[in-house]
Computed example of a mutant assay.
Amino acid sequence: MRQIILDTETTGLRVEDGNRILEIAAVEMIDRRLSSPDRHFHCYINPGRDSEEGALNVHGLTTEFLSDKPTFAQIADEFLDFVGGAEIIIHNAPFDVGYLNMELGQIGRGKFSDYVDNVIDTLVMAKDQRPGKRNNLDALCDFFDIDRSNRTLHGALIDCELLSEVYLGLTRGQDSLLIDFDPYAGNDAALAFAKSNRKPLRIVRATAEERAEHEAYLAALDKSVKGECLWRQMEKGE
């Protein structure tokens, strides 16, 4: 499955006030693994206006820095080619999608949903799993023990990288283990043939380092599901 973690930075909070996008980052993830950096999309954009003071304090991207950057119209084709057909993951999706729809509309390119498979909002997911808690990106990084020490200012690319880890934390329980899957179920002849040609199983025992990594993974899993990890319950005989 091809998924894109996406984030934007803008000149202000309200698209209705004429604010524009000034940075876009999109990080590719294939089958829950981040692709290499050369498969990421990231660009700064000249928004054609100054940032509001509050927004500038958040992202630190000055009008002078952005003055020689391309416009959204100039990067639109490359951006749409990159996200085309993918499942998009955004934190507080209505904000970013609202701005993308505005920018696309201004150049006659329709809506963002015309180009992608669907959009997943991790803020909605977090609120479902952690009702009544703070669920901004910083709070979720703290909850999942994700290192955000390099995030001194909001930047679209680093926020995408952090959000990818948050998304994996939020969806960790959805991985299918296929414990009961039997490819030969209902086919006695195929089962007999498979057994007759099966070589003795080679037993490879886990190293101490592998056992420690497994224990750390179970601890993180148990924390993310609030003590309801099935493996932990099996260990206790519950």
Score class of each variant (00 low, 15 high):
Asn187Ile: 04
Asp17Trp: 06
Ala189Arg: 11
Arg205Asn: 14
Tyr167Lys: 02
Ala73Asn: 12
Lys127Asn: 15
Ser35Thr: 11
Arg148Gln: 12
Asn150Trp: 05
Leu104Met: 14
Arg148Ile: 09
Gln74Ile: 04
Ile4Thr: 12
Glu78Cys: 03
Leu140Val: 01
Glu87Tyr: 02
Leu168Ile: 11
Ile158Cys: 00
Ala190Val: 05
Asn19Gly: 02
Phe181Arg: 14
Leu61Trp: 05
Arg148Asp: 12
Lys69Phe: 07
Cys43Phe: 07
Val15Tyr: 09
Phe112Pro: 11
Phe41Asn: 06
Asn19Asp: 13
Arg2Met: 12
Leu22Lys: 09
Ser35Ile: 03
Thr10Lys: 09
Ala76Trp: 02
Glu53Gln: 12
Tyr167Cys: 03
Cys229Ala: 12
Lys195Asn: 14
Tyr167Gln: 02
Gln106Phe: 13
Asn136Lys: 04
Arg198Ser: 14
His214Arg: 15
Arg172Met: 15
Glu23Trp: 01
Val124Pro: 00
Leu13Asp: 01
Ala192His: 00
Phe181Gln: 05
Arg33Tyr: 02
Leu34Val: 08
Glu210Asp: 10
Asp81Gln: 10
Tyr44Trp: 14
Asp182His: 13
Asn92Ser: 06
Glu16Gln: 15
Arg148Ser: 14
Gly60Cys: 06
Ala219Trp: 02
Ser51Val: 06
Asn136Thr: 08
Thr62Asp: 09
Asp121Tyr: 00
Asn19Ile: 04
Thr71Arg: 15
Pro94Gln: 01
Phe65Lys: 12
Cys43Ile: 13
Ile179Gln: 07
Arg130Thr: 03
Gly84Ala: 13
Arg211Leu: 14
Val97Leu: 01
Ala26Trp: 04
Leu80Ala: 09
Ser113Tyr: 08
Glu161Ser: 05
Lys111His: 15
Leu178Thr: 11
Asp121Trp: 06
Leu170Asp: 00
Leu177His: 13
Ala156Glu: 09
Asn57Pro: 00
Thr10Met: 05
Gln106Leu: 15
Gly98Thr: 08
Thr171Leu: 09
Thr152Lys: 13
Arg109Val: 10
Gln129Trp: 01
Asn118Met: 11
Ser196Cys: 10
Ala216Cys: 10
Gly108Val: 06
Phe181Asn: 12
Lys69Trp: 04
Leu170Met: 09
Ile45Met: 06
Leu153His: 11
Asp142Glu: 10
Phe72Ile: 12
Gly84Leu: 11
Asn136His: 06
Ile179Ala: 14
Ile107His: 02
Thr11His: 07
Leu221Asp: 12
Thr8Pro: 03
Ala212Asp: 15
Arg148Gly: 09
Val83Asp: 00
Gly108Ser: 08
Val15Leu: 11
Ala185Met: 11
Glu53Ser: 13
Gly48Arg: 03
Ala86Gly: 05
Asp145Trp: 07
Leu13Trp: 05
Arg202Ala: 10
Asp138Glu: 10
Thr8Gln: 05
Ile203Gln: 12
Leu80Asn: 02
Ser67Glu: 11
